[in-house]
């Protein structure tokens, strides 16, 4: 039985490990070193510059715009997405009998809600670029059709509206996934709890606040982490959809876009790597904070 054990283990692990080390681990490790150099892509021409790249980040107004925009998205996108997602998921359940069984047609709703999750962010960005088009777009066309033509805007060209337009796309594309996720979590709550609430005369809102929300808390926290990471990215939508991209005038600039431009347009590979490291620490902080919050209060089902 022990015959060939090591040969099998080596055959199973070595190819994947080689791939992992060459294409994943080594680039990650190199990025930290590159961020301390002034490398512009010429072999052997990387000079160690210490923390100078990081110091320059603080004076790069476009990068600061990017940090501000990512921070706004980090707060707004998860809150709005989770709000709508929880609302729809609990509606599906509360609207039914006994406080839990889904309302009629909730299966069909879930199918439709989930559609955007399947599409590439590029497809979504191109699509919404059309929707926002000031002259031929769905949005302004609709506003004019119902007599609200005065509200028609050039959504992506206005510095005040562009970031909101980007965030709306991010929310639109992710709500469906979280409806399905929260719905599954609510399904997992023992039926008796809802029945007890109903017998005690709790209304829809009280049931949601006192029963549903505490018991799907962990799922909501997971959702915050995932959505937060997506909000720290937002690269594809911004790069494909916005003017510039990242405009107008930095209004939709994100860290990923700054990094991409500095590296592959300007050839400032060391500087771009410093942005990557900054993004890494932002992601890490987010994950650690969320995990901590998760550990504090955990409701156990008796």
């Amino acid at each position: 039985m022990r015959h060939g054990r090591w040969r099998f283990l080596a055959g199973a692990l070595v190819p994947a490990l080689v791939l992992h080390v060459v294409f994943v681990l080594s680039p990650y490790a190199q990025a930290f070193y590159l961020s301390l150099t002034d490398w512009t892509g010429v072999a052997g021409e990387a000079h160690f510059v210490g923390a100078r790249n990081y110091a320059r980040l603080g004076g790069d107004s476009l990068f600061l715009d990017a940090v501000r925009n990512n921070a706004v998205m980090l707060v707004v996108v998860p809150l709005v997405t989770i709000g709508i997602g929880l609302f729809l998921a609990s509606m599906m359940h509360l609207g039914g009998r006994g406080g839990r069984r889904g309302i009629a047609g909730s299966g069909a709703y879930q199918i439709v809600y989930f559609f955007p999750q399947l599409l590439s962010l590029v497809v979504i960005a191109v699509l919404w670029g059309f929707v926002y088009n000031p002259n031929t777009g769905l949005l302004n066309g609709g506003l004019r059709a119902i007599g609200l033509g005065g509200l028609a805007q050039s959504w992506l060209a206005s510095p005040a509206l562009a970031l909101i337009a980007v965030m709306a796309v991010l929310v639109w594309s992710s709500v469906g996934f979280y409806v399905v996720l929260f719905s599954a979590a609510i399904d997992g709550i023992p039926r008796e709890l809802f029945e007890a609430a109903l017998l005690d005369g709790a209304g829809g809102w009280a049931t949601f606040r006192k029963v549903t929300l505490p018991l799907v808390r962990e799922t909501v926290q997971v959702a915050f982490v995932y959505l937060g990471i997506a909000a720290l990215d937002a690269f594809a939508v911004v790069q494909v959809m916005t003017v510039g991209p990242g405009g107008p005038d930095g209004a939709t600039e994100v860290i990923g876009l700054s990094l991409y431009r500095n590296a592959f347009t300007y050839g400032k590979f060391g500087y771009a790597s410093a942005m990557g490291v900054a993004l890494f620490f932002a992601t890490l902080t987010l994950a650690v904070l969320a995990l901590r919050a998760g550990r504090k209060e955990r409701l156990e089902l008796a």
């Binding site: 490990l17 990215d233 590296a263 992601t283 994950a287």
Partner: peptide, 30 residues
């Protein structure tokens, strides 16, 4: 076997890194 956990965590840890961090070195590796 020895190193089992270590190998497991090198894979799992990679899920927590943003791909953007690897982007520049990855380009040159490829």
């Amino acid at each position: 076997f020895r190193g089992n956990r270590f190998i497991y965590y090198t894979f799992v840890a990679a899920m927590f890194f943003p791909v953007f961090l690897a982007l520049v070195p990855l380009f040159f590796v490829v």
